[in-house]
Design a protein around this nucleic acid. Structure first.
Lengths: 366, 366
DNA sequence: TTGTATGCGTTATCAC
DNA sequence: GTGATAACGCATACAA
């Protein structure tokens, strides 16, 4: 019964013009409420609007963008959307965009480099006016980004420091985060603290470790090397669960005493908690665990995970704001300074950490 | 130093033509590897490709789509991307699309109805050729979808049964899922089982409950009404954590015995576990808990959550396949039968359920 | 083998 | 107040 089903066999401006008995220009002017529509007779306007409505007219975004020379679109390229970390970021981006005329186009690279490049290209061809890249996890070498995107499209990376590639970056203050985590455990009386560091290749990892060391040296705390392990580099965020699990098992096997574990991120913390549980230890009674990120699930596990929160919403918002600003003021040779934007982390206390019971930081051993 | 920064001030086919000394058509033919390019001299081809490369030519998707009358795009409208349930679905969709010429455009309605409608319109204007709607959570009334999308664009909904609106739907067999969950608990020896039902408005909720009842009556198991509660309808998935928490608290306050809880979904299960923990009960030693969905975090909590898995990847793939099929064979009056596509759920055993210790299904009370 | 001309659906500039 | 008409960048039928 219905006609052709193709999305393209559809009513155009011309059709509306013919049907309404006016010219395409008049129809266009009216439907867009262009300045000139002020001079169009009210009856005409109503008539045109009505026929357009009745015919189910939808402007063709392609034709429009081609003509207007703008897409009203911001590309959001996510490296791995399965990382819970991303979601709040996305929400922040969306919120920042909601009030504007721009629409986000979200693309997930599915943790694959080739996809990432392909989609990046695709976004450029779609003439996105700005680009927010959510680069949560590893991808060491982002040539495509620095080569293609920058100097063509205002681009901001969030979740990773790419200022070396001269790309504006929004990141949490990782060093401060490490510092806070350590400070929290220390304040609870913990002295024998095991540390699960992030993979070597990650910049985040190093900076958090610096913060940890800084606090330790400030209070004269000894960090036992045998209770400090480093996650292997891996290709996806969830693998740090296994990492946390296995490395914690290793800690336990040393039979060294420790009363707390400082984990690289929340997944690592989850892995650590699993390992402790398997060995018959309870969290937080026998061992405290602190994570990093504050991914959504950190609040719904039992016990809830104490963690260092990255203000992901705000990071997403800021990144978007920066893109919008660049769009508004197309100054060309933007200063290379103030390329890095750092946001403060925040301690979120839940139930996975608690005051140590015994006196001098005595912890568990087996 | 750089020229203008607008994404639109960029090298066009004409530019390449001029620079290479050939006509736009030759350049177009060569760059698209059109059939006619067979007859183009190799030297010409190389020359054109080289100059295009050097000039950093990227075809304009708008102009191209306008001309070709197709967008090569599938719209993916997600009602609430913060629901972990969505992510695997998205991955399934992406995978099904990867081998094709279509690109997914993901849009998140942020759990808001107005956004949903706005974005739906936007996708239509962008001339998406097909539409996959990820309708995980409540939104009772999807007029916009049934009115606009269907009969214009091949549309498939996944995660919710909208066949009443004559929209193809892909859902898990909820009744079978409820049945399996009950069967599992029963097989472990549980007889006093508390049930946390989903919100009344959700179709899923009712069907799972039917499955639960079916199993119960098959084995002659009594379901104590005071140990059966229903989540309030709510606007987002994570609220079921609080629901599970509070309703379980209620169960405990009845002082009735129960040895297991069957939760509506994994978040509800998480809430139940928290409530049990707060009252000093351990999972699974004192009470077993089974969830539904198998969201990613179900495997990383401690204990891991036994749950009924929805094959989300496959559901996403199937939904996409259906859209692609509709696209390939534009038969108009598709049969109203076979609108509903049901996928089998699967029991995933982890550590939150275990064999009951005491003899006759004796459970805990306090 | 390569070039010319036309139109996709819009918007914007001008003329009536 | 309204209507012709020319682009936007590309792909293609047709001419050379």
């Amino acid at each position: 019964m219905a006609k052709k089903t193709s999305p393209f066999t559809r009513v155009t401006l011309q059709d509306v013009a013919r049907a309404s008995g006016f010219s395409t220009s008049s129809v266009s002017i009216v439907l867009n409420e262009a300045p000139l529509s002020r001079y169009v007779a009210v009856d005409t306007k109503n008539h045109i609007r009505k026929t357009a409505q009745e015919m189910g007219y939808h402007p063709d975004a392609f034709a429009r963008s081609l003509r207007r020379r703008r897409s009203d679109t911001i590309g959001v390229l996510v490296f791995d959307i399965s990382d819970p970390f991303c979601i709040s970021l996305l929400r922040g981006i969306e919120h920042a965009l909601y009030q504007t005329a721009y629409l986000p186009i979200i693309i997930d690279a599915d943790n694959r480099r080739d996809q990432f490049e392909r989609y990046l290209e695709m976004l450029i061809e779609r003439r996105v006016e700005g680009l927010v890249v959510v680069a949560n996890w590893l991808f060491a070498d982002i040539d495509p980004l620095s080569k293609i995107a920058n100097n063509i499209i205002p681009t901001v990376v969030v979740g990773r420091d790419l200022t070396q590639n001269l790309i504006q970056s929004v990141v949490v203050d990782n060093e401060q985060g490490g510092f806070l985590a350590m400070q929290h455990l220390h304040a609870l009386g913990h002295r024998r603290i095991a540390v699960l560091r992030g993979p070597e290749e990650m910049n985040d990892s190093m900076r958090r470790w610096l913060g940890i060391q800084r606090f330790a040296s400030e209070v004269g705390l000894h960090l036992e090397p045998r209770l400090t392990s480093q996650l292997l580099s891996a290709m996806d965020p969830e693998s740090s669960f296994d990492g946390g699990l296995n490395l914690t098992k290793g800690f336990i096997e040393t039979r060294l005493k420790f009363s707390a574990i400082l984990a690289f991120d929340d997944f690592t913390a989850l892995g650590a908690m699993r390992a402790l549980w398997k060995s018959g230890r309870r969290v937080p009674e026998d061992c405290s665990v602190i994570g990093f990120d504050d991914i959504p699930l950190a609040s719904v596990t039992t016990p809830g995970i104490t963690t260092i929160r990255q203000p992901m919403m705000d990071m997403g918002k800021l990144a978007t704001k920066l893109v919008l600003e660049a769009l508004a003021s197309p100054k060309v040779g933007s200063t290379i300074t103030d390329l890095l934007h750092t946001m403060p982390p925040e301690l979120v206390q839940r139930d996975s950490t608690r005051k140590i019971l015994a006196k001098t930081g005595r912890g568990i051993t087996q």
